[in-house]
Amino acid sequence: MNVFRILGDLSHLLAILILLAKMWRSKSCAGISGKSQVLFALVFSTRYLDLFFVFISLYNLVMKVIYLLCSYITIYMIYGKLRKTYDRENDTFRLEFLLIPVIGLSFLENYDFIPTELLWTFSIYLEAVAILPQLFMISNTGEAETITTHYLFFLGLYRALYLANWIWRYHTEKFYDQIAIISGVVQTIFYCDFFYLYITKVLKGKKLSLP
């Protein structure tokens, strides 16, 4: 464990809690892509299966349970409690355009052709593209609530910190997880455009509205 990974996990947890707080306080999930949240729940469900038969550390166990719980609560809020505020018309990204390539790639590029590894690989590739429906929705509506931009900022920051963690682990323990690293780079690249808007607009107190 290193500081980049701890900060990354905390940034991820903060993002998830910001999203829940936004929905809880405003009693609305306007501007939130339910499809992205479904993909994140799928990422956690396929990656954290080892929760039941591999014990890594108490921290690892607790964080996995928190992520799983929060992601399902988020989905329950969007499609259950606050479904009247979910703007389905703007959440139109075709998930099959993500799931089919990700499943295909998981079968092609993996460390071992066994169910747990295929599921882990699927979850890594899926996480890289899971935010696309959300970014697509913002481009559809042309703007996003400020609290939503903070959610996206910490969500993007988490994997960027993981990149630093992998550099650190490579130099200190010759750790090199090629699938996670390449996928993490792609995932972070998808946020670059948003990061630019966030830093040049939101941090200057303006609302995030796309030109």
Binding site: D9, V54, S57, N60, D112, I114, E117, W120, A180
Partner: peptide, 10 residues
């Protein structure tokens, strides 16, 4: 490369 089933990161 980490072997199968040895993924210690979240």
């Amino acid at each position: 490369e980490p072997g199968a089933g040895k993924h210690d990161e979240l």
